[in-house]
């Protein structure tokens, strides 16, 4: 890079700004940031309402109109971080010791036709992993049960 300045009769002076070291440094910085760049995966959200004193469990997608809904409970027993057994309890039916098969659980729950009028509480044993909890919630949401809640397992069990 050069620029010419001429004042009066003084001879032309060429000014050089060496940009090569700056470019070298910039490339080094670029290399550093590119090599340490770890893109964040696209995250999604599952919104819930935190437990109230009365229910003791968190409620998913609470209905703003506070419509009275049938409450079903899925008790999830865990072993080694994974689900082991399911119990189903509701106003119209109750089943115990279902095998750890989410398709079977969905089939049992398919007797509920008006899924939008149902709130479901997942009563979960302490050692179930967060990944398995999200898997079960994800499965139930895909099956149409959008109002889900979580709570710890009651001491009687």
């Amino acid at each position: 890079m050069s620029s010419r300045k001429r004042r009066g009769n003084s001879p032309a002076v060429e000014v050089y700004i060496p940009i090569t070291p700056m470019l070298d440094m910039t490339f080094q910085l670029l290399f550093y940031f590119v090599s340490t760049f770890n893109p964040v995966p696209v995250e999604g959200q599952i919104s819930m309402k935190l437990p109230t004193e009365n229910t003791g469990g968190a409620v998913l997608n609470p209905d703003p109109l506070q419509e009275k809904k049938d409450n079903y409970t899925v008790v999830i027993y865990a072993e080694g971080g994974d689900y082991k057994l399911f119990d189903l309890k509701g106003p119209s039916f109750s089943k115990e010791s279902l095998p750890p098969d989410l398709n079977r659980l969905r089939d049992e729950l398919n007797v509920i036709t008006s899924k939008d009028k149902v709130s479901m509480t997942l009563e979960i044993q302490d050692n179930l992993t967060y990944a398995k909890l999200i898997q079960i919630m994800d499965y139930l949401r895909q099956a149409g049960f959008m109002e889900l809640g979580v709570s710890g397992m009651s001491k009687e069990r």
Binding site: I46, K49, D126, N127, Y130, A131, G152
Partner: peptide, 27 residues
């Protein structure tokens, strides 16, 4: 993903006790 439910649930309860009412689980 490997966190056990009790460790997540106790944070939820702490948030509730602090006065918060809404929570988002991230995945």
């Amino acid at each position: 993903a490997a966190t056990s439910f009790d460790k997540v649930y106790r944070v939820m309860k702490a948030c509730k006790a602090a006065g918060f009412s809404k929570v988002q689980l991230r995945a």
